[in-house]
């Protein structure tokens, strides 16, 4: 029961952790300075403290009345994440166009069922679109192909 309640609060707990990270980080590693000459640590310390206090208020308030949250859709999240990651991995090795194709292919798994023909059309369209817009149209200095 308690565990389930905490799970519903994960978002707030995440914010609490971020607030603590910045607040404590500023406190222990950065110079707060004096009120007249505020150091690099003063501002993040204040902002971190405010976030921590507000996160605690939100936790207490939401424990009494559970907040509604949406369960994650891991398939879409995974597919989009893999798509962006593939773009970052393929670009340095093979160039932008193959990366765009890989990215479109992976992202197409985020949208649910798709026939092979449509998937192929999507990938081809994405590669052609990137080529037309970014390389032919805008003439950005991008490496279209590499290592071929």
């Amino acid at each position: 029961m308690m565990l389930k309640r905490l799970k519903q609060q994960s978002g707030t707990l995440l914010l609490l952790a971020i607030g603590l990270f910045f607040g404590l980080g500023a406190l222990s590693f950065l110079d707060p300075g004096t009120p007249r000459r505020m150091g690099p640590g003063a501002f993040p310390m204040i902002a971190g403290l405010v976030l921590v206090i507000l996160a605690c208020i939100a936790l207490v308030r939401d424990l009494r009345q559970a907040p509604d949250y949406t369960p994650a859709d891991w398939r879409s999240v995974g597919a989009v994440a893999v798509a962006v990651a593939l773009f970052a991995l393929v670009t340095p090795a093979f160039g932008v166009l193959p990366a765009a194709g890989a990215c479109a292919l992976a992202a197409s798994f985020a949208v649910g069922r798709l026939s092979h023909l449509r998937r192929a059309a999507l990938v081809a369209g994405a590669v052609a679109g990137v080529w037309l817009i970014f390389i032919v149209g805008l003439k950005l200095p991008l490496e279209a192909f590499k290592g071929f």
Binding site: A83, F87, A100, C103, A107, S108, L122, A126, G129
Partner: peptide
């Protein structure tokens, strides 16, 4: 939608990359 969102993912990836050529 099944064309739109994959296309958006490609566009933003390449868009962000093209600003500084930074992976």
């Amino acid at each position: 939608h099944y064309f739109l969102y994959p296309a958006v993912v490609v566009l933003i990836s390449i868009g962000v990359y093209s600003i500084d050529h930074s992976l």
